[in-house]
Design a protein around this nucleic acid. Structure first.
Lengths: 339, 339
DNA sequence: ATGAAAGCGCTAACAG
DNA sequence: CTGTTAGCGCTTTCAT
């Protein structure tokens, strides 16, 4: 663990010079640069990130905040993370996934003293206490998701409104007039107020009325059982329903089973459309589920960019980026590998 | 961002005293403690993690290394992470998920200067370059997984050997004599040499011979298509196969479809057993897949404990912890909620 | 029981 | 172009 001073001694220069060549902060003669570089090699100099952070007030580390709730990682979540991390890496930052409690109480030690230069929030609720916390703390941050009023906040998000309209357009085009919507029930949990749910439900209810159609919303409990039960309750509320949107991957299977159990064939009697999901999840079922695929990759990249733009001062404008899920009908064949 | 010095001034004591009460490092009179505490409240003192780290050479942050490969997070992976993080938190540490390239080339800046006190590795390969790197760097670490020769390394892992034997016992008990094994094909990728695959394949081949049974191994490509194709090739290699083990969640669905397509009914003609998987994944299918569930929770907790024990000097012995997956037959009913 | 002071390893003026 | 030096905010002997 050679120090910079040791490198300086070895190279016969001052510590400042070493710092300059390490950071490219100032011009240094090729000759001395060479001496320094050699000394670094010989001593296997690594540079102390912590010391540098203390002195320079930046770490080039950013955190993606993940709520420590029982909920698992969805494929979409995973996509956010991997792609945001990759993008950050391309831009010279490290992005790490940081578990924090949903209330944001343990945000302090994360941020205090500049352990991270900035954070991106995911799994955002309509009124998310974490954004208040972060604002107070004065850390640069961006959201994957939106609070109720996010006009002043930098965010990237799925355009749920458009997604739902597109989904309903598609189904209505197929002749459907009576719709169902299956959502996760988060009431009473720390994730209550989860923005995607509320936006989707709102849009669904409103749009269905606008279209002069029938719409029924049911909340599913956890897992396959939850989906089964949701099917039962949906059919009870509207026995004539012919198309249902599901936004809960882990209960899609149960939903299908529940529909079959009630004598409905899918897709002949009832169409099922999984929303804000992934190709992989849709493929789990047979027949393959029609799916509105979340743009996880794009959003991850955009979120990283949005944050790093502010950190680097590359861009000063407030990013507001919305992207709808794209429909992949069940009958579509997997595209040939492009690489 | 009040500093410790400011707190000291406000309380009329020295900075050392503040440090003592903050860390409980030394006894301080209740009276002065009170003064200091008050000053901290008033100034909203947070403490600078980076400065502390530089001075004390520890951050109480540990990293879970996740290889930045195309592969997504499995539910089991997610379970490792969440539970390890929770356990770490209980023991006063922060655990973050840190993406590093599989070769371990970017491990230096993570570790240099003690940014993290220790790391836990996952997705371990038989000859994992990262453990070499980490040894050189001198960072305390533990594995979730095992290299080929892990006798000298601290690890927790799934007992794949026992898992396979148990699975085969189960199937053989049902009367099966001709087995198939579906594995992911990682050849040519950075994750080639992934230890679970090699151990499972080895054990399977050996055990099947010991049992005087037939065994066929096929490698599946990605996704549902991969599973379908695997089914085709499996049946081509052994048309009389009646039981197949799959260790690749995302192609189970395809496998089932492929079997149906070839005229085999599941489970009547062919039994399918998903191994090292999760209850949630098994429930995605209909009929529900028999599953050997990975002990993700237990392993996550154990891994965190193993690492932190070394960091805190709580325990000095080399942890070698193996736990097999537990069988959940398809016909089993979901247990009633226990809370 | 508390304080003084010497670092931890590096950055960034400011000189020269 | 390179060196001097004063911090960054906190921990930790060593005194008192």
């Amino acid at each position: 663990m050679a120090t910079m001073q040791q490198v300086a001694d070895r190279a016969g220069v001052s510590i400042a010079t070493v710092s300059f060549v390490v950071n490219g902060t100032k011009y240094v003669t090729p000759a001395t640069t060479a001496k320094v570089t050699a000394a670094m090699r010989e001593l296997k100099f690594r540079g102390n990130v912590v010391a540098r952070a203390l002195a320079s007030r930046r770490t080039r580390i950013v955190a993606l905040l993940f709520p420590t709730t029982g909920n698992r990682f969805s494929p979409t979540t995973s996509e956010f993370f991997m792609n945001a991390a990759e993008r950050a890496s391309e831009r010279g930052y490290h992005l790490v996934l940081w578990p924090v409690d949903p209330a944001g109480d343990d945000l302090d030690d994360l941020v205090s003293g500049g352990l991270v230069d900035g954070v991106v929030l995911m799994e955002v609720r309509m009124d998310d206490p974490r954004v208040v916390k972060l604002s107070e703390l004065g850390v640069p941050f961006t959201l994957i998701g939106r609070t109720r009023d996010a006009a002043e906040l930098p965010y990237v998000d799925i355009d749920f409104e458009t997604t739902i309209e597109d989904g309903l357009d598609h189904l209505q085009g197929l002749g459907h007039r009576r719709f169902g919507l299956v959502l996760e029930n988060l009431e009473g949990t720390p994730m209550a107020g989860y923005a995607p749910h509320l936006r989707v439900e709102d849009t669904f209810r409103r749009s269905v009325v606008d279209r002069g159609c029938a719409g029924t919303v049911v909340y599913a409990g956890p897992g396959s059982e939850g989906g089964r039960d949701a099917a039962r309750r949906l059919l009870e509320a509207d026995p004539d329903v012919t198309a249902v949107l599901v936004m809960k991957d882990d209960s899609s299977a149960g939903l299908l089973v529940g529909l079959y159990a009630a004598g409905r064939r899918v897709p002949d009697d009832v169409s099922v459309l999984s929303i804000a999901s992934s190709a992989a999840a849709g493929d789990q079922h047979h027949p393959r589920l029609s799916t509105m695929i979340a743009p996880g990759r794009e959003l991850g990249v955009r979120a990283a960019d949005a944050l790093i733009d502010r950190l680097d001062g590359t861009s000063t404008e407030l990013p507001h980026f919305l992207l709808p899920c794209v429909l992949r009908p069940a009958e579509s064949v997997a595209a040939a590998p492009t690489r």
